[in-house]
Amino acid sequence: MSQAVKRGLKLILGADALVESTWRTTRRVVRVSLNVIGFSVSSVCVANTFFNVVGYPASISGGSMRPCLNHTSHYPTLDWLRLNLDWVFVNVWSARHWNQFERGDIVVFLSPKDPNDFVIKRLIAFEGDVILRPEGELEVPKGHIWVEGDNSRNSIDSKHYGPVPLGLVFAKATHVIWPPQNWKKIQPSLENHVDKDIREIDSGHCMIISHL
């Protein structure tokens, strides 16, 4: 024990035995505190790595993905925990390579309008695909995708801000994990987004007949 610290404690406490006891107690408290801090920091680092590399659960706000997500409200008395909403697993690992994506997947990306806002929509078309809309044809440019909400009348998506850069897409929603009665794996689907069959035009590119 440091002699300076010992002298200071002795002046305050006035007894050698009490000084030794206080010092031992202080060392134990400091040791335990450092262990707790170290464990907490390690846990945060592990959790942060898992979230950034593998994925994490997330609640879905709004009605743009109805009827697939948030079709009905659940447990309204637990809205302060956001348990009145659907929760999905945001699979970051699945977004490592674009060959793992399919038309009809539900993707998560940074909003082209607000980089602080995360958006969830359905992937409708890849680069090179042609979107046929009432105002004419639009070819999805290289390095972009076309996304739309399932509830087209209540969705701000590519119909409003155009194709989304691939660099903004960081995950896809792979499972519904809340509420329990809706647990399921989310399957790729374009059922609510095409008026006719998708027609291949060349080299794997497709013409998509998009809703209004």
Rank of each mutant, 00 (worst) to 15 (best):
T72F: 12
S61Y: 06
T72Q: 13
I12Y: 07
I131S: 03
R31F: 13
L11S: 07
C45Q: 14
R133P: 09
S59I: 04
L13D: 03
V147M: 09
N84M: 00
V29L: 14
L132D: 11
E137I: 10
N151R: 15
G38M: 10
K184Y: 08
W87H: 15
S111M: 03
G136H: 10
K184I: 01
L9Q: 05
K142M: 11
W146P: 01
G63Q: 07
S203H: 14
H160Y: 05
G167C: 04
R7W: 03
A95H: 04
H97W: 01
W178Y: 06
F118I: 05
R133I: 00
S43H: 12
V5P: 04
Q181P: 00
S21M: 01
S33F: 15
N116Q: 12
L138W: 06
G14W: 10
R66Q: 15
V54K: 12
C68M: 02
H144C: 15
P134T: 08
G143R: 07
P134V: 06
W98Y: 10
A173N: 06
P141H: 07
K159V: 08
T25K: 12
E102Q: 13
N182L: 14
L166N: 10
E137Y: 06
I186M: 06
A4V: 12
L123M: 01
D79H: 12
V147E: 04
G149E: 11
Q3F: 07
I156Y: 11
W98H: 04
T77L: 08
P141S: 06
T22E: 08
W23M: 14
R24P: 11
H144N: 14
W23Q: 13
D79V: 10
A17S: 07
N48W: 02
L34E: 07
I201C: 05
V29N: 04
V194S: 08
S73M: 01
K172A: 07
A125W: 04
K185Y: 03
N151D: 15
L81P: 07
F51W: 00
L123V: 10
W93D: 00
V92W: 03
R27H: 00
F109E: 06
L34V: 12
D197V: 14
F170G: 08
H211M: 13
S189P: 02
E148D: 03
P180Q: 03
R122D: 01
C68P: 11
D79G: 09
V194W: 03
L110R: 13
P141Y: 11
N99E: 14
R96A: 09
L11Q: 11
N192H: 15
W87F: 14
K184L: 00
L18K: 12
K159F: 09
M1C: 03
N99C: 10
I177L: 04
I12A: 14
L166K: 14
N99T: 12
Q181V: 15
V108F: 02
W93C: 09
